[in-house]
Amino acid sequence: MSGMWVANGLSQDLPLGVVMAGSWQGAELAIWRSATGRLSAWNDRCPHRGMRLSHGFVRGETLSCIYHGWTYGTDGACSKIPAHPAMVPPAAIKAEVYACVEADGVIWVAPAGTEVVLPDLSGLVAVRSVTVQADVAALTRGLPGFVQHGAVWRGQVEGAAVALVVQDRGASVTLHGLGAGDRVRLSRWLDGVRRLVEEGVLA
């Protein structure tokens, strides 16, 4: 079931109290980290008026929609409707919740209830994410000598082990880069990969 899990960023890029946009296959997601560090991933849509929750704000252990301030707890249930402060929101008002975990510095998302089976990235350090304007098929051009295992491409850069975790966004691909060697060198190498793949697409 590891194919169900989609990488959505590096842990270091989602600090406490922050929400960001994410994706699972075609679905758009809001991924956020509470004040105490709890990770959540939801459908990027407030049930009230369809506003993207990824534009919202985190307070403590809740995420609020930026449109009307409707507030949701980490279980996805609406806990507050500011227009009606005295009302207890009906249980039916609930964000659509995905499973969200992090391991080895990578944030992973899957449909709720998916068994947690993730690639082993231990021994590598999360470096950075790079978004490439190309589809997944174009990646082979920029990654000669790399071997693909599901969402993870493994290889060597200047003698050090590297893993790139691929997040397919349809028209673009985000590569979440981890490595055992020098971080700055790996970061520069990733820029080169992006150029190669994008130029290959143009040519």
């Binding site: 009230h48 008026r49 369809g50 506003m51 993207r52 009307h68 227009a83 009606h84 009302m87």
Partner: peptide
């Protein structure tokens, strides 16, 4: 505008069920 360009779907749902209104 920052709201209007970020509502999903772009079209206004007229059938009940797709969005949840309150008394406000």
């Amino acid at each position: 505008r920052s709201i209007l360009e970020n509502q999903i779907p772009r079209l206004l749902p007229l059938d009940p069920g797709k969005e949840i209104p309150t008394q406000a």
